[in-house]
Structure formats: C-alpha cells, structure tokens
Nucleic acid binder design. Structure first.
Lengths: 228, 228
DNA sequence: ACAGGACATACTGGATGCAATCAGTCCAGT
DNA sequence: ACTGGACTGATTGCATCCAGTATGTCCTGT
C-alpha cells in the first residue's frame, strides 16, 4: 500500500503503533464509529498503553480518531456535510498540488500512470481499486521541494477513505466508465503538457465524486453532529 | 486572544498543556528552532512528562512542533518555500471558507469588522496588530454547520504566525496602507453582499502578503530543509 | 411495573522509576 | 595541532502502578 503516512520521522514504538493503526483504519479493518480500547492496541502491538496513547493523540490530530476525555477513543466518523467539505477543500488544493508537481513529471511516470489507469479499469476487487486509485493520483503529486501541501492532501484523502470505500461498493458501471475516462483524460493532458487542462480535470473529477457521494446519504451516520 | 485552538475537546492535563504551549508559541514566547524540554514544560504546567509528551505529539501533528526520536522537540521552523506553500494553500481555501461563512454574516458582525479594521489602523503595537488582524479575518469566517475547513485554516495561520510577526515588524507604512485598504474594501464588499468581490479581495490580500514575505528571506532559517 | 439511586466494573489519565539513546567533553594517539 | 574514540551528563522512551471517572447493573422504594 502506498504512502499512507503524512510524515513518519521516527522508528519508536508510538510511531509504529500510529502507523499500524492508521493502516488498519484506512484498510477498513476498523470502521467509523468503532470503539478503540487502549489495552487491546497495546497488546496487539506489543507495548504498554503509553505509546498507544501518544499514537491516538497523533491520529486524533490527523482526523482519523476521535478522543473523549475519560471515556475513550473511536474511529472518526464524518457526517455527509463534513465529508463534502473535505471534498470541496480537495477540489481547491489538488489542482494546485498538481501544478507544482507536473513540471517534475517524467515520461516514465506518465507511462506508469497510463498503466495504472488501465489496471484500475480491469480491477474487479474494491480494495484493489481503492489502492490503485490512490496510487494513481499520488503518482501525479510527486512534487519536489517541500511537502506541506502533499501532506495536507494525504490527510484529506485519509479522513474520507471509509466513505470512498462505501461509495465505491455501490456505484454502477456507468459512473465507473466516467470515472475511468477522467483518469485517461488526465494522463493525456499530462502527456501533452497541458497543465491548465489537467488542473481542470482533477477539479472536476473531485467534484464529480463529491456530488455522487451526496447522492448516497445512507453511507453516512444518521444525523449526529458527532464532531464536537 | 481569540480562537487559537483548532478544536479543544477535553479539559485534561494534556489538553491544557497543548493549549498553553500552543499559545506560548503563537505569542512569540518561544521562537522557531527553539529547543523544548519535556521536564521544563511538565514543571511549568504542574504535571509529569506523560501529558507533556501527548501534548507534543498533538502539536507536532498541527505543525507547531518538530519531534526527533530519542533526541528532543523544537519549535517548528519553516523555510521560505514551505511558508510560501502555506500561503498558496490559504489563497485557495480562505475564499471558499469566506463564501461558506458570508451567508451567516449579520449586520452586527459587519459593523464590528469595521471597528476592528479601524482599531487595527490606529494600532502601534505589533502584538496588538497581529491579534486584531487575526480576529478580523476569523470574524469573517464564522461558518455555521461543520468546522473542518475553519480548523484547517486555523492551523495554517498558526504554523506561519512567527513569520507574520517577523514580517510585520519590518514592513513600511506604505505597504501598511495597502494592507488596511484591503481590509476596508473587504468590509465594504461584505456589506454590499458582493460575495464574489469579497472572495477576490481575500485571495489578493493573502497573495500580497506572500509576495511581500518572499521579499524578506532574512526572516527565514538560512537554507536547511529542516523538515525531514 | 417503573423510576431513582447506590454499587461494581472496566477503562482512562497521570505519576514515578528505570533503561536506552544522544550530545558534548576530555583524553590519547598520530 | 588535529583527528578519533571512550566516557559522562542530560534527556528521552517506556513499563508498571495507582487514582479518578464513566457506564452498566442491581436493588430499593413507590
């Protein structure tokens, strides 16, 4: 699985646990709203509760976990409105990130993008599809220089991952067709060096997904403002 | 001081420490690159190192602190390129946030914005100016509904606060004039309900600040990629 | 039968103590 | 004089232990 972590800087236990739990949440092993018990994590990762708690704090700040004092931790769940907000944010940021990255895109990368888009089209498995989709888009975001924007976008992807999964599982083949077309068009635009067009495609691609998500309120928690 | 914290959800020691340290960093009490010693914080806030460490993890995730395993913690410092990236991000996001908020802006708020802009203009003190500026802009961001976007913008403001401070202290009165004009124009646009114009003003305002910041490389750490 | 309250349990929050790692210093060798 | 290496002090990372809080259950009273 590619690049789940915004910026891992140490190899200590708490970092290991944060990474493991992040992966577990993103892979769907833990679902939004699910309770997280410190001691279980401690045992699973072979440590005491101290590093577990530090990991939970970190993931809370990343928006993957929700902590309530003296009560416990849960996998973060988003209302439809919140999810929609994240997508609107992505719609503004990813074209910018793409612009920064595009100048560093080599022919090799464009070629591998093509392959990824093709592979995705032939993929039947949802989990595989999600991974490939992520890999595809982040392959276009290989900005040199600094990483603040890419880290930010990574987090936005992470917090909405469970809903992307839920949505993917019930989308029909017609919408999938459009989805794949977006990818191929993006590859073409990048190959032609038409940056402006590429930015537009990404923005529309994200907006399309948001609109589709908003057609499926049933994949979000009932009402509950939950988040504060 | 108004609204420094993205989302404080518990009143525990670690939350208190995170809030206190965040405030200390934003107020300039601790400068970028400065070493942070766990035990000193523990003593200062009257606790052990455990909640201090959790607070540090959180602030690291917020981009205010830099942790290196087995070595220590420092107040995060940004290169000019990173700071510039944050400003480009803000330039994309704050117009969006403003749009979401504007429909909830009452006449009272617009009136108080006017007062704030005036007060800022008469302010001689840098710290007071920084606070008022922040208060002013966030007064325009009082979105109802969810808060993910506002939290995000809050964090972006936080990470760049030290450089805003440094820059403010050496800007000349001519640039200040333009700065204040932006504010008054923004208030007018909001009063007239001209949302499109308001968005443009905010974007330009942020861009202007970024460009000015880029004219002062001396306020940033020498070269050092520092981050990773 | 139902509501209110006390108790028990399970879990979280935090303090102390110990092991491990890093940085800076001093000394020896070339 | 300068480089390389061992040593020491300081500081971090983690485990264990204890206290505090929330939740669920049972009992009592009406």
């Amino acid at each position: 699985m590619a690049e789940l972590t915004p910026a891992t800087r140490d190899g200590s236990a708490s970092a290991r646990i944060a990474e493991g739990l992040r992966r577990a949440i993103l892979s769907g092993e833990h679902r939004p709203g699910e309770r997280i018990v410190q001691e279980e994590l401690a045992e699973r990762y072979g440590g005491s509760r101290i590093p577990v708690r530090e990991a939970l704090r970190q993931l809370e700040s990343e928006g993957l976990v929700r902590l309530v004092a003296n009560t416990g931790a849960w996998v973060q769940s988003l209302t439809m409105a919140q999810c929609s907000e994240v997508y609107q944010t992505r719609e503004r940021l990813e074209p910018l990130l793409l612009r920064h990255s595009a100048e560093h895109l080599t022919d090799d990368v464009v070629h591998s993008l093509d392959e990824l888009a093709q592979k995705m089209e032939n993929s039947g498995d949802i989990e595989e599809f999600l991974e490939l989709d992520r890999e595809f888009h982040f392959a276009t975001y290989r900005a040199e220089g600094t990483y603040v924007l890419r880290d930010l976008v990574t987090r936005l992807w992470n917090t909405t991952q469970p809903y992307r999964r839920a949505y993917t599982s019930l989308v029909d083949s017609e919408h999938m067709r459009i989805f794949h077309d977006d990818h191929h068009m993006l590859v073409s635009a990048l190959r032609d060096g038409d940056l402006k067009l590429a930015e537009q495609i990404v923005a529309i691609h994200i907006r399309r997904t948001r609109v589709n998500l908003e057609r499926h309120p049933e994949i979000f928690p009932p009402t509950d403002p939950n988040h504060e």
